[in-house]
């Protein structure tokens, strides 16, 4: 219900439309992004995909950090390459891995990024401090970045991405290295921020996007193979997720043979398995509501089960 009213509102404002047309990025013979045509309007998008699916490459293309080998990217009908500064002014980007200046203090780093983004004097300071506060780094603002933990650097990275109030925010695995408390803080930050903007975040941690993303894009081998709302997208595998109890001793055998998305040891010597399978995996299995994690497993079972060769074989074709 709430989502609907939000959507109606954004329609009234000047909306953004980021569109890729047959977008392709090829490294040698490897197509990291393969002829992708998608249209992104305002909202939070969760980009799900296994390692090497092409998430980072897609995001770099969207940030104009790499030139596509084919296809185009348009913002409201205009090529982002032509828009140049104007496009980047709307852009906030958190790379999956990024460098920083070890000897800079956190606040100086943000001020530097603010200068790069064209924020001036007082406004830059105000925004930098505000964001340090929001990512929980205000106490460490004057510490050198080299003294930061991985999660702290990541939060600093999130802060810099948001400095210019970007209308297009692209976050590559933003929750990497964040502890649960910080994850929650991050989700809230993004939820509050996302109104009237395009937010794309990639991850392989399903629970991250389950809560904040309005749309999920499932990416595999450089293509978006599936997309939809978190509630709807799982309907694809409706009736294919099962729960069944087996004796704990036998559990290992089942896990090896089946596509198991979860297992829970009960006190009575039984283990409850959650299985993704087209057919009823065993006699006393019962159908349960699918969730995103099940879906993820459904799409990436080859890799999850370690059947890498088959995956590569598919890829070459």
């Amino acid at each position: 219900m709430e989502r609907k009213t939000l959507e109606q509102k954004t329609l009234e404002e000047k909306t953004l439309e980021l569109k890729t047309l047959e977008l392709t990025k090829q490294y040698g013979r490897k197509k990291a992004v393969d002829c992708m045509s998608i249209t992104l309007t305002e909202g939070v998008y969760g980009l799900l995909g296994a390692n090497g699916a092409g998430k980072t490459t897609l995001m770099r293309l969207l940030c104009a950090l790499q030139r596509p080998t084919g296809g185009r990217i348009l913002l409201d009908g205009q090529s982002i390459g032509k828009l140049g500064e104007e496009y980047r002014d709307l852009l906030g980007y958190l790379p999956q891995r990024f460098g920083y200046y070890p000897d800079f203090r956190a606040i100086d780093f943000l001020l530097y990024m603010a200068a790069l983004k064209g924020l001036e004097g007082k406004a830059a300071e105000r925004k930098s401090w505000e964001l340090l506060e929001e990512v929980g780094l205000s106490c460490e603002a004057k510490h050198r970045i080299k003294s930061f933990s991985g999660g702290m650097k990541q939060r600093l990275g999130i802060a810099q991405a948001m400095l210019n109030d970007p209308r297009i925010l692209i976050l590559d695995e933003p929750t990497t290295g964040l502890d649960p408390k910080e994850r929650v803080r991050f989700r809230n930050l993004i939820s509050a921020f996302s109104k009237g903007r395009i937010v794309i975040l990639s991850t392989h941690i399903v629970s991250d996007v389950e809560f904040i993303a309005e749309k999920i894009l499932v990416m595999k081998s450089g293509r978006i193979i599936h997309w939809g709302r978190p509630g709807e997208i799982t309907s694809e595998i409706q009736g294919q997720v099962w729960e069944c109890a087996v004796s704990t001793e036998q559990a290992d055998r089942y896990v090896a043979g089946l596509n198991v998305s979860n297992l829970r040891n009960e006190r009575d010597g039984h283990t409850v398995l959650r299985v993704v399978a087209a057919e009823k995996p065993m006699e006393d299995a019962r159908i349960v509501e699918p969730n995103l994690e099940d879906l993820y497993l459904y799409y990436f079972q080859e890799q999850a089960a370690g059947k890498d060769d088959k995956w590569k074989g598919e890829d070459k074709r």
Binding site: A64, E85, Y93, P95, G99, G118
Partner: peptide, 20 residues
């Protein structure tokens, strides 16, 4: 020195390719 990873941030920022 920026090619070690800061280039990601610089070149995606408004003035990264121009003034910077």
């Amino acid at each position: 020195g920026e090619y070690g990873g800061v280039d990601n941030l610089i070149l995606a920022s408004r003035y990264g390719r121009t003034k910077c």
